[in-house]
């Protein structure tokens, strides 16, 4: 157990520390001026000293990322299911979906601002636009590869199409669904920042960075980039965590607990039914 934690948490942390060390070494060894590239510690300090200004902006970016992610995930899942179930729609909609991803997202931002204004909405739309696609593609793929013998077995048992969908097809798609969600999670922050660049009137993390850049405050530019990266990584890790919770059979050979509590042979729960 201890070894596993060390391997799964310790080693990735070590690689980040290594990266920062290399950065530090390059800056020091090559005498790079701080306005070209700051030292890691300088970048971190630039963020911490101005944290009271940054924090609300960070919260804003997180909100756009999370909202957009959920809208995109839900849309992606629904589209994947509908397209898997209605083959005509699949042929009709698939090219449009591919087209939607071929459009440069930056080019999309300007018209979105015209339509939706400078609110949080255009950012959410951009994030969702990026997130839904890998989810749809993976769910569609997962649903089309459900073992037909298993579906037939359910049919022989007399299962309705709805029950088969809920009990067989959806669970069988969990792994591809999470693959799509993980890809979406890594790109979600990028979408939020693009949205902020194109569609912010007041303050935002992206504009804060632009401002720092024009002031030659390079340490703050790097620091802000680190903050954005941390938001992205955290969101990705949360999705990974959700996958771990949702798919215990991938890692365990024995279920942590069965529904023993709801059975009559378990005394305590006959007296105290849930």
């Amino acid at each position: 157990m201890k070894r596993r934690v060390l391997r799964n948490v310790g080693v990735p942390l070590l690689s980040i520390v290594l990266l920062l060390t290399i950065w530090q070494l390059i800056v020091v060894v090559f005498h790079i001026a701080p306005y070209i590239a700051p030292r890691p510690w300088g970048a971190i300090r630039a963020v911490t000293t101005d944290w009271s200004t940054l924090w609300p902006l960070v919260l804003g970016t997180i909100r756009e990322t999370v909202y957009g992610f959920f809208v995109g995930a839900l849309l992606g899942l629904s589209l994947g299911v509908i397209m898997a179930k209605v083959k005509v729609l699949q042929r009709l909609v698939y090219p449009v979906l591919v087209l939607s991803q071929a459009v440069p997202i930056i080019a999309l931002a300007a018209p979105l601002v015209l339509i939706l204004g400078f609110s949080v909405t255009p950012k959410v739309v951009i994030v969702a636009w990026i997130v839904f696609f890998p989810v749809t593609v993976n769910v569609l793929d997962g649903l089309s590869h459900v073992d037909q013998d298993l579906v037939n077995l359910a049919k022989v048992y007399g299962a309705s199409r709805w029950r088969t969908f809920l009990q067989i097809e959806i669970p069988a798609t969990t792994t591809p669904l999470f693959s799509g969600l993980k890809i979406g999670a890594t790109y979600a922050v990028t979408g939020a920042i693009i949205g902020e660049l194109a569609a912010s009137s007041g303050s935002s993390l992206a504009l804060y960075q632009e401002h720092a850049n024009s002031n030659l405050n390079t340490a703050a530019v790097y620091g802000t980039t680190m903050v954005m990266t941390v938001i992205g990584i955290s969101w990705f890790l949360l999705v990974v965590g959700a996958e771990v919770l949702a798919t215990p059979w991938q890692r365990r050979s024995v279920a942590r607990r069965q529904r023993w509590r709801r059975t009559p042979d378990d005394r305590t729960n006959v007296l105290n039914p849930k």
Binding site: L150, A172, T247, W249
Partner: peptide, 10 residues
């Protein structure tokens, strides 16, 4: 069938 068709998530 020859395939046991047990669902891995149960």
């Amino acid at each position: 069938l020859q395939k046991d068709l047990l669902v891995p998530w149960r």
